[in-house]
Design a protein around this nucleic acid. Sequence first.
DNA 1: ATAACTTTGTGAAGAATTTCACAAGCCTGT
DNA 2: ACAGGCTTGTGAAATTCTTCACAAAGTTAT
Lengths: 201, 201
Amino acid sequence: MYLRYLEDLDSRGQQTASSDELATLFGTTPAQVRKDLSSFGSFGKRGLGYPVHQLSDQLREILGLGHEWRVVIVGAGKIGAALANYHGFSQRGFRIVGVYDNSPSKIGQLWGDGTVVRDMSELEKDVAGNEALIAVLAIPADDAQVVVDRIIVAGIRAILNFAPTQLQVPAYVSLKTVNMAVELEGLSFALTNMGTEKGAA
Amino acid sequence: MYLRYLEDLDSRGQQTASSDELATLFGTTPAQVRKDLSSFGSFGKRGLGYPVHQLSDQLREILGLGHEWRVVIVGAGKIGAALANYHGFSQRGFRIVGVYDNSPSKIGQLWGDGTVVRDMSELEKDVAGNEALIAVLAIPADDAQVVVDRIIVAGIRAILNFAPTQLQVPAYVSLKTVNMAVELEGLSFALTNMGTEKGAA
DNA sequence: ATAACTTTGTGAAGAATTTCACAAGCCTGT
DNA sequence: ACAGGCTTGTGAAATTCTTCACAAAGTTAT
């Protein structure tokens, strides 16, 4: 998240930023910003603040964004389509190298941007060839675990999961699940308990 | 999240579940499960475990899912469309009562399921009429803050934000931001630092 | 060069969260 | 009815995370 704001500042030509300034921007405290950054190294200049552009570069390095990551999307439904067309991915160095589905009605379908939906059964061979390490999963919950097991064997090492289920993966595979219904339920809880608790910001 | 698994167990006809069993399911510890649940009340029966169905009901109550929430979607792009068609929402009591956009090419568009995209300028009137309290924001980052200010005035009290930006809202409004690029960057970090840290599960 | 001012980096204090461990309670056998 | 076996609920300990506060270091003005 820090990176996003630093790039913003950078594009506006700001040279340096103090922890105070960054904290207001991120909605946190100066001490937090300094602790967070210091855990990766000593980036700031005392009396001056943090060099915006240089810090951006270093964070990108730390996050492993120095090179392009190849990503496959599994599931060519509505969510898969939205993700495939999402510019935010390509802008940040994630190149979508394939979209897969197992439904005959979807396979071969040509999307607006030239992507052709491929058969799941080709995934193994493709992943071996293009060395994709990241998969985005946009398939029904019931199919998710078997597909996960399969793509891990194929070589995938990180999964962004949109299926509303908890998945089992070995320790050497990173998994991040995004569950939109759960997010909405969190809002429902907040609305319901507004008076009782302090309101979330 | 607990609720999701409890419903799963319930639908399989399981009567009770121990904290141990739930913990394995959620990927946490039995002590954590007991602490979490006990913070809302005393649901379990000693020697037996938690009554699955009854606990589901109580959690739904706590989360405020006892009634239908009316939701508006702002932004009729790819993401907005995917969300509008996402069955997970309606399945869990969130009814989409309107989709809005300010682009003339989108307004009036009829989607497959009968939804008609309406002009942003009608949002205020509509929200007053249908008493929607929750908005899903699927618009470009640059427009997000002005739209947020506007829908809050209109009466929205909770926002699920898909725009890649930090938004300012008053304390009485709940905000949850989902940023898919940030999630992917988290995976990139995990992949890059696999050997150094213990792998994320 | 020096003084006054700013801001980082970081130990130490404080707060919050998680884990431990066990008494108390409930169920099932006999 | 009672003993033996599980499992919860919860204080207390351990751990993790956040905030405080200040010395050290850099900048600016004179």
